[in-house]
Design a protein around this nucleic acid. Structure first.
Lengths: 187, 187
DNA sequence: ATAAATTATACAACACGATGTCGGAAGAAT
DNA sequence: ATTCTTCCGACATCGTGTTGTATAATTTAT
């Protein structure tokens, strides 16, 4: 018999959504299986048909949020753009804002930031693939530095919800990337 | 009767150390009170004389690791240094390496990074206290950007334990802060 | 100085709630 | 009618947090 895939998919989705509502308001360690299934309207046992435990739900959500290689636009060639797809990253963050702002925030999961960085790095790396004069290790650290800064800043911005406009933030980060931090300080 | 402070302090310390050994090797949600007390050699009930739950242990450890205002050297005046105490931060990280590399790592606590940033920000802020032409909000974001980058990069470095020397890393971060990222890319 | 009273510290036992599993019921597909 | 999918109820086990108690250290009284 064919699996009733549409039904299971729906059930799983309901459980995931119930989990996310809870995760949005409290730390994961305080979330019980019972909490989730009650909210979604299922028996507690049903949960285990779809997930091994509460952390498995989070992990599955995270994996669905890691941009696939073709989702991020291939970084334009050196002469074209600047080699740092700030705009693409902004889009990515905005598109998944609902999840990113929590996963990358104070109650989030530090492993997710790593996953994200590691998925973006190779895409940028490949621009420099044929260059022979590149110190790959140094480049790796430069990317780590930049991605950490971008993720940190955008998370901060989303959780502040203060009046800085999207454009101003974009422009500021651009300036910091192009000219460095020191020059921006009013010394 | 006077508390036998030396005894309680010792017991608490034993529990903290047992917790840390466990936390170093597995996620906090898998650590039970029984795990901790067994490792430390106490009854499970004793744990509750000192902590409310497992997360309380982590929180107390974290709070002892936030640099106090006088621990971080006052940032030298504008004309002197560059306004970004990179060296001081390196020292801080090295001194507490054992804890920082885990708390700020993949299995760590994202809240700790926030605490750390928020404890350092005002120290740097005060350098610009009397300047009237400062956009404080922008400055705040610049600091968020820089501290995120520094913390991210150093964590990455510690968990890589690759062959990049301390000096080279220091020099690289300095370069990125002074000249920006873009100029460092071999375009 | 020594014994009695007091109190700090650690422990054992308890009730409760969450976990993960297993066998079965209801209903859809063939 | 039969098979298989999906969901549920019940079970044993484990972790939690609390409370009452034994032990040992300190103070007070004699």
């Amino acid at each position: 018999m064919r699996k009733r895939e549409d039904i299971t998919a729906q059930t799983k989705q309901n459980l995931i959504e119930a989990f996310w509502l809870l995760y949005s308001e409290k730390r994961i360690e305080k979330i019980t299986v019972k909490d989730i299934t009650t909210k979604a309207g299922y028996n507690r046992g049903t949960f285990y048909e779809y997930f091994t435990d509460v952390y498995d739900v989070l992990e599955q959500i995270e994996n669905s949020l890691i941009p696939s290689l073709d989702e991020l636009p291939p970084v334009s060639t050196p002469t074209g753009s600047l080699g740092m797809p700030l705009g693409a990253f902004f889009e990515l963050y905005n598109k998944n804002n609902k999840y990113y702002s929590i996963l990358l925030g104070e109650r989030g999961d530090p492993a997710f930031a790593s996953k994200l960085k590691n998925s973006i790095k190779p895409i940028i790396m490949q621009v420099f693939y044929d260059k022979t004069n590149v110190d790959r290790k140094e480049l790796d650290y430069i990317l780590e530095y930049t991605l950490s800064a971008m993720i940190g800043t955008m998370s901060y911005w989303f959780n502040q919800s203060d009046t800085l406009t999207n454009e101003k933030l974009h422009e500021l980060i651009n300036r910091l990337m192009e000219q460095g931090v020191i020059k921006q300080l009013p010394l």
